[in-house]
């Protein structure tokens, strides 16, 4: 077993921020070290959680689309939602999960724009659910800069 990727990236961050940065007198080099260290910390967090957050979010969007069709009177959009719900699962490579997420979030943009034009109780409920999902999406992506 080798040290995990987050462990290595956090070690790099610690070296840059605590060993090298105090020895750097030059402002531009100092800023670059500071940003690089912080970036390494964020990459460590993202590496650890990327697959989990994408699986969670893709499932949440598919569930939302599955429930949305009743509120949609646009036949083409409804068909797209059905297709997204029926699509086979992707593999667990982050790149594959990310591509699926890109497709689903693009469809979410179109669904949201459509729902905003419909005045019905079902549309308003769907609109509220979309806003809740958007807020949740920012929580899933949140990173912190505390040195692990």
């Amino acid at each position: 077993m080798v040290p995990s990727v987050p462990l290595v990236l956090n070690g790099l961050a610690r070296t840059m921020l605590m060993d090298l940065l105090p020895q750097t007198a030059h402002a531009y080099s100092g800023q670059t070290l500071q940003l690089s260290g912080a970036l390494a910390m964020m990459c460590a967090q993202e590496f650890e959680r990327a697959a989990a957050r994408l699986v969670e979010e893709n499932a949440a969007l598919v569930a939302l689309f599955g429930d949305a069709t009743a509120a949609i009177d646009d036949a083409a959009l409804r068909e797209e939602l059905h297709a997204a719900v029926a699509a086979p699962p992707t593999g667990l490579l982050v790149s594959a999960l990310h591509e699926r997420n890109r497709v689903l979030r693009g469809l979410l943009v179109r669904l949201h724009a459509h729902v905003e034009t419909v005045d019905s109780p079902a549309a308003r409920a769907l609109d509220a659910r979309i806003w809740a999902e958007l807020l949740e999406s920012t929580r899933r992506r949140q990173l912190d800069l505390a040195l692990a």
């Binding site: 800023q31 670059t32 940003l35 690089s36 912080a38 970036l39 964020m42 990459c43 993202e46 806003w131 958007l134 807020l135 999406s137 920012t138 992506r141 949140q142 990173l143 800069l145």
Partner: peptide
């Protein structure tokens, strides 16, 4: 420029949250 990668990771999601606040959705 490493600043561009840093702002991508640190600010894109934070900015989405600020926009939700401005839209009074938080």
């Amino acid at each position: 420029d490493i600043m561009l990668a840093f702002t991508s990771y640190w600010l894109i999601n934070a900015q989405d949250r600020f926009l939700l606040q401005a839209l009074r959705r938080v």
